[in-house]
Amino acid sequence: MNIYQPHLMRIDEVVAETSDTQTFKLSFKDPQVAQQFKFLAGQFGEYSVFGEGECTFCIASSPTREGYIECSFKAAGKVTQSLKRLSVGDTIGFRGPYGNNFPLEQMNGHSVVFVAGGIGLAPVRSVIWNVLDLRDQFKNVTIIYGARSVGDLVYKRELAAWAVRHDVKLWTTVDPGGQTADWKGEVGFVPAIVEKAAPVATDAYAVVCGPPVMIKFTLPVLAKLGFAEERIYTTLENRMKCGLGKCGRCNIGPVYVCKDGPVFSAAQIKALPPEY
């Protein structure tokens, strides 16, 4: 089998998350592929619009939800803009799942703190639902999510669902100036809200995804709260083409993000040369 040959997927549902971000619910057209497909939270794929090309997104749905996958993407360039023009019933290509995954087995039995900014909630959401679908296997679950403005928050329906759950502590925030008159969440940058929420580090893991500046300023806050670097996980998003360790696009020093990542602990990232 040619490793560059994608599977065909049908778009079953389209959700407009924000003005430039959408979520697709996708199912494999080939029933045999649909049956055999397995993935783990944190893995990614190469999605393609035929005639436009491929691009890399994480799988944003949870492996506990079988029979479909979801991806959320921001219209940024050539392929993502043409993906945005597609609708229910259209066909796209998918190669994957690729890369490593969040260490759910290790996290099992512990508390988990999720910190996400903007569309960085997409990879985190896969882990969140994975944890919530196995809720009694984990201790406290805290979710801290921020976006530039209220209009930029993704997965609003799920934020609402998490907000009313008693087994989840949810903090939502928007950057100063991004709030609306009826905004009930926090106002402030994510790192400040993490400091305010002050999740307990004892027996806990943290999953942090978002824009590089958010990650940069959140890590010291988590350190201050007592999270060891080995217990903080994030994803790197170096540009990729093949996703298979062949094309030479994604490496940071000796680390191939597509093969060794995209999930890394803060300790692993600290050891990398600064090319991410």
Binding site: Y4, V49, F50, G51, G53, E54, C247, G248
Partner: peptide, 17 residues
């Protein structure tokens, strides 16, 4: 051995990756 992957339409109905 670095490479890029691109789609090139060949007419209106199809093309090559």
């Amino acid at each position: 051995h670095c490479f890029d992957i691109v789609d090139e339409p060949e007419g209106m109905e199809g093309g090559a990756r």
